[in-house]
């Protein structure tokens, strides 16, 4: 299937699946490990992919949340993400997509400006999170947050839907503080 659809299968019982898309293999692997270490009432499954579309010969469970990881130090990872975005069904963007930008701490190494990723996230009306995945403690806390988002997107939190969470996280325009 070329395009990823949110409701293409029935969900697994008590399972929540997240798909991490990004070019930074090592970082994604570490993030996946941290997520699996979190204790959580649901069964977590983490899938990693370099880019979309995903190969169609593999059976995989229904994907509840896609997180696109952009490394601010490499323009290639941004391009990769922009390409992959074209293979995602529009229905996914109702709260089941998030962007994660890593490497913002090392300002001098950044070849992609933060505002570029910000604008991308705003264009797709999805939340943008910042985290330096190389640092242990930041990664663990980001894993915690992703797990909670995943639980909501998989419907395991009664009364809150993914779209609901999206509107809570707000589409704040986030003007840059330099204008102050």
């Amino acid at each position: 299937m070329a395009v990823l659809r949110p409701q293409d299968q029935l969900p697994g019982l008590n399972t929540a699946t997240i798909l991490l898309v990004g070019t930074e293999d090592a970082l994604l692997q570490q993030l996946a490990d941290s997520m699996l270490k979190e204790d959580c009432a649901s069964d977590l499954k983490v899938h990693l992919a370099q880019s979309l579309p995903l190969p169609s010969n593999v059976t995989r469970p229904r994907i509840d949340l896609i997180v696109f990881v952009v490394n601010l130090h490499s323009k290639y990872s941004l391009q990769n993400v922009e390409e992959s975005l074209r293979h995602v069904d529009a229905a996914f963007f109702l709260g089941k997509v998030g962007f994660l930008a890593t490497g913002a701490g090392r300002d001098s190494h950044c070849s992609v400006h933060r505002n570029t990723v910000l604008r991308l996230a705003q264009a797709y009306r999805s939340p943008l999170l910042f985290c330096d995945l190389e640092v242990d403690s930041f990664r663990v806390s980001m894993a915690q947050r992703l797990v909670r988002m995943l639980q909501v997107c998989a419907g395991h939190v009664p009364g809150v839907s993914a779209l609901n969470l999206l509107s809570l996280m707000g589409s704040s325009e986030n003007p840059s503080a330099e204008g102050l």
């Binding site: 939340p127 999170l129 947050r145 909670r148 988002m149 969470l165 809570l168 996280m169 707000g170 704040s172 986030n174």
Partner: peptide, 9 residues
């Protein structure tokens, strides 16, 4: 707004 984003997750 940033705080809210952090808060809910």
């Amino acid at each position: 707004d940033c705080l809210a984003q952090l808060f809910f997750t």
